[in-house]
Amino acid sequence: MNVSLNGEPRVIDDGACVADAASHAGIDDGERGVAIAVDGLVIPRSRWAQTPLVEGQRIEVVRATAGG
């Protein structure tokens, strides 16, 4: 299916979940300090593995950066 991952179009497997999007974005399983929003809604990490993605969703994967 087609999704938008951090503003870029991506094709990911049908049935993929938020955790799969995290690995697509290069996030290791153990990495802390990361958050994901799907269509503007924050998905708690505890639910990444159980939250399926659907065609056309916008996924944002963020972490801490120097600034502010």
Binding site: N6, G7, A25, G26, I27, E31, R32, G33, V34, A35, E60, V61, V62, R63, A64, T65, A66, G67, G68
Partner: peptide, 16 residues
Amino acid sequence: TVALRRVEHTEGGLYD
């Protein structure tokens, strides 16, 4: 204080 950005615009390690 730290900012948040898309992962490809950041280096890991700051949080730890």
